[in-house]
């Protein structure tokens, strides 16, 4: 039941991550793969400090995208591997819940 939202969120996240890094459309991406966009260069010309900061921000954002996308992929893939092993009965399904203790409250 929760696999559908998971797949949807993965599709959304990874598409957005991909577009933010590899997109060729100005304004969509943080352009880590190519020289800074014309708009950024124009800003840099009018105000070198601000322009340099914007370009640095873009690069930093792109780095963060890479890190977060890798973490997402790592968590999803390792969880999928765990599930696969449990479904193939190579590993017992263990739940590490705290033991049952009867409540003292009157319900």
């Amino acid at each position: 039941m929760t696999i559908v939202p998971l797949l949807w969120l993965l599709a959304v996240t990874l598409t957005a991550g991909w577009q933010k890094i590899f997109s060729r459309i100005p304004g969509w991406d943080f352009c880590p793969m190519r020289p800074p966009s014309l708009a950024r260069l124009q800003e840099a010309r009018s105000s070198p400090l601000r322009g340099a900061r914007l370009i640095f921000n873009d690069r930093l954002d792109a780095l963060m995208v890479v890190i977060f996308v890798s973490v997402v992929l790592l968590v999803v893939l390792s969880s999928a591997w765990e599930w696969l092993q449990i479904l193939r009965k190579r590993k017992p399904a263990v739940v590490r819940e705290s033991p049952f203790v009867e409540t003292a409250y009157a319900n």
């Binding site: 977060f68 973490v71 997402v72 968590v75 390792s78 765990e82 739940v95 590490r96």
Partner: peptide, 20 residues
């Protein structure tokens, strides 16, 4: 929870993500 139920690698990755 991720560390205990899935594994240490996933747990640490999740912790880094959570902190960031």
């Amino acid at each position: 929870m991720a560390k205990e139920e899935i594994g240490p690698v996933t747990g640490i990755a999740a912790m880094i993500a959570v902190l960031s």
